[in-house]
Simulated assay, not measured.
Amino acid sequence: MKILVCIKQVPDMESRFKLNSEGTWYDEADLAFRMNEYDEYAVEQAVQLKEQLGGEPEITVLSMGPDRVVEALKKALAMGADRAVHVKDDKYYQKDPWQVASVIAGHAAGQGYDVVFTGMQSQDRGSAQVGVTVAELLGFGCATTLVGFAFDAGVITAKRELEGGSKGVVKLKLPAVVTCQLGLNTPRYPTLPNIMKAKKKEILVQAVSELLKEAEVTGTGGMYPPAKRGGGIVIEGEVNDQLDKLMGILKEKTTVLRAA
């Protein structure tokens, strides 16, 4: 069995964000980066599947981006992946979900992967489109937002989180793509011996142009912070006086809105 895990390196969500000089993306200069949280569940589930099958599957972890994404790849290798693929692309943020999925499918085509694990979505963009698009491009079955995973006799039993908090169960034959959600598992911390072993594991570097040929470069026209809202109004006094003041304010605002 061959397993592919797709990961993304994203800014730490506790960082203070500011726009870059072009106003088209965030400035990365002073940001701390980490592996996308949902992708950690994907790596962990792939490693658990390998352990279940006696270590027989080979796990490849793939990430697209600039040189810094190697750190995320090394963490995945230390968690238990066997090899890594770094699709080098300094303009990764100009790629829309279809193009990102095309890059992944371009690598996966002909490689004989049986299972592709991805996170449900990335924390910086949150489109939740890449995993399902990879499945479409490869012609694989797909289940999304997994909170439960089991494998037996070539069949995946996937428990999915549905709207309203309910759960649904589907079965998938291989090959398949699954996207992983919070609650699926508890990602392991890489141990020092495994961190040292990861340094010797292969990281294949590919240019994005090798996998995405003649692609139209997309981009963001502009990004703008939300407009600042005015301060709230504190109404003081007795309850009846407060109600009278509130009704007066609402009538005044209604009159302004109608006039506009």
Rank of each mutant, 00 (worst) to 15 (best):
Ser21Tyr: 07
Val47Leu: 02
Val61Gly: 01
Glu37Asn: 12
Ala42Pro: 12
Ile7Met: 08
Val10Gln: 01
Glu58Lys: 15
Asn20Val: 11
Ala46Leu: 10
Glu58Trp: 09
Thr60Glu: 12
Met13Ser: 14
Tyr38Val: 04
Asp27Cys: 11
Leu31Val: 03
Glu22Ile: 05
Val10Cys: 04
Tyr38Ile: 05
Leu19Cys: 02
Ser15Leu: 06
Ala46Asn: 08
Asp27Asn: 14
Leu62Phe: 05
Ala29Ser: 15
Cys6Pro: 09
Gln9Trp: 08
Val10Glu: 00
Glu71Lys: 15
Gly23Leu: 13
Arg16Asp: 12
Glu40Pro: 10
Gly54Asp: 06
Val70Arg: 11
Trp25Ser: 04
Glu51Trp: 10
Val61Tyr: 06
Leu49His: 09
Ser15Val: 11
Glu58His: 11
Val70Met: 08
Asp12His: 07
Glu40Trp: 04
Phe17Arg: 03
Gln45Asn: 15
Glu14Val: 10
Ala72Lys: 07
Glu37Val: 11
Gly54Ala: 04
Gln48Cys: 10
Glu37Asp: 13
Val10Arg: 01
Leu53His: 09
Glu22Thr: 08
Thr24Trp: 08
Asn36Glu: 09
Phe17Glu: 00
Thr24Met: 04
Phe33Gln: 04
Ser21Leu: 10
Gly65Leu: 03
Ala72Val: 07
Phe17Gln: 01
Tyr38Lys: 05
Gly23Met: 11
Glu71Thr: 13
Asp12Tyr: 07
Lys74His: 14
Ala42Thr: 09
Val43Ser: 02
Gly65Asp: 03
Tyr41Ser: 00
Glu37Ala: 13
Asn20Thr: 13
Trp25Thr: 02
Asn20Gln: 06
Met13Arg: 14
Tyr41Gln: 02
Lys50Ala: 06
Pro57Cys: 04
Glu28Asp: 10
Met13Asn: 10
Glu14Cys: 10
Ile59Trp: 04
Glu14Trp: 06
Glu14Lys: 15
Pro11Cys: 11
Asp39Arg: 03
Ser15His: 08
Leu53Cys: 11
Glu56Leu: 15
Tyr38Ser: 10
Tyr38His: 15
Lys74Arg: 15
Met35Ser: 08
Glu71Ser: 14
Arg34Phe: 06
Leu73Thr: 03
Pro11Gln: 03
Val70Gln: 11
Leu77Glu: 00
Ala46Pro: 04
Val10Gly: 02
Asp27Gly: 08
Tyr38Cys: 09
Asp30His: 14
Ile59Ala: 03
